Simulated scan of single mutants.
Amino acid sequence: MATDIEDIAHAVEAAAVMRLLPTRPRLLALGEPTHGEDMLLDVRNELFRQLVEQEGYRTITIESDCVMGLLVDDYVTTGTGTLDDVMEHGFSHGWGASAANRELVRWMRAFNEGRPASDRLRFAGFDGPLEITGAASPRQVLTALHGYLSARVDAGLFPCTAEELDELLGADDRWTHPAAMRDPSQSVGQSAEAGKLRLIADDLVALLDAQTPHLLTTSSREDRDRARLYGRTATGLLRYHHWMADTSPSRITRLVGLRDQMMADNLLAVADRAPALAHAHNGHLQRNKSTMRMGGLPVEWWGAGAIVNARLGEGYAFLATVLGTLGHQGVDTPPPTTLEGTLYALPENRYVIDTRHLTTALGDTRPEPRVSPWFGYSPLDPAHLAATDGIVFVKDVTK
């Protein structure tokens, strides 16, 4: 069997990835089974460079705050700010401390130097302004949307003034109270002010859409795209805060689903710049339902990849990254009866593998699911092979 699989395992190169796919996708998604490993991000960076140089890709989007990511995009496209400042303030979840992410941003800026705007690389975060501990205040995005429209649309069409909006928003720490994630009673998401803000956000987004013909002549595509980002983020955040105040048993399931819905909306917007590469956890990008356990209970929802796949069809492709060992986290050589154990017999450290041919090579062999001794690593469920376009296999992940 090892020989058969070695025949279908190829170097991780853009050309090999493109050969896996029936057509060039608008959005190529590369998942990872764990976060915080620069070796896996190095693989992503090299693949993106090849996609840029050989396949015409110009956009990368990662699992980071979509609003903070605007700082990174400004830097790589125009040189606004400094690399140090962008790494500190342009990423969420601590991703700015990653040497591999820093190298990605540095390389993108260097690539763009002296190029016309139409040929520059673009960066986007596609996560909402959310952390596992809570969600941001909607102030930044609501006021930005209101400001964009105020400069271009008659004041009589607005649902409120900037001053009224500011008063309803109140202090930001009301929205970001750290206890709200575990205690719904600490959330302001179902307060009278929050209810009014949801209506205002909806009206501002409707006004943005209704004024499209006028806005086409009075602002750049860049400004319009950012206004739409502010609009969908404002409505998404307010919806998320509303359900943070919910006390039903479905609260967590709804919240994780809402987060991925926000991710999906941002990915679909990125797909308008096709072709683009998306990078995030396998669980967010896979076509199958996402699952996890919280508080000892199973949680199941449709992730961003599943939603985007339903919209784009063959315009969406998904590569799952699979690893052999992660020694510094106690993840040792995989059992030979698992999918990872079968791939571990390959001689080199990195491969891209066609899952259709892999299924044929496995024949009647049904790999056993791998069980990770460390919570931060999620092995690939063998039952998901059929819904995966390819596997990127990294044999040994080291620091």
Rank of each mutant, 00 (worst) to 15 (best):
T161R: 06
L312M: 10
P213N: 09
V43N: 00
H242N: 08
V43T: 03
F158E: 13
P367D: 01
A361N: 01
E37K: 10
P275M: 04
N112T: 07
R254W: 07
A278C: 04
K395M: 14
A280L: 05
A135G: 09
V394T: 13
V86R: 07
A135H: 07
L30M: 15
D265W: 11
Y377L: 15
E55Y: 02
M39N: 07
A100Y: 03
K289S: 11
P275C: 07
E53M: 12
L21H: 01
I8Q: 09
L267S: 07
V12K: 08
A14F: 08
G283Y: 01
V371A: 09
T59D: 13
P159E: 09
R24E: 15
I307Y: 14
E167I: 14
L130S: 08
S150Q: 08
S64K: 06
T365L: 00
S137F: 02
W302I: 12
A310I: 00
P25Y: 05
I353Y: 03
R174F: 05
I307R: 14
D65G: 05
D265R: 06
N282K: 00
M39L: 06
D354K: 00
F91Q: 03
T388C: 15
W243S: 14
L71C: 04
V72S: 04
L204E: 03
G324N: 06
H242Y: 10
G324Y: 11
A99C: 08
A179I: 10
L343H: 05
H242F: 10
G257M: 14
L145H: 01
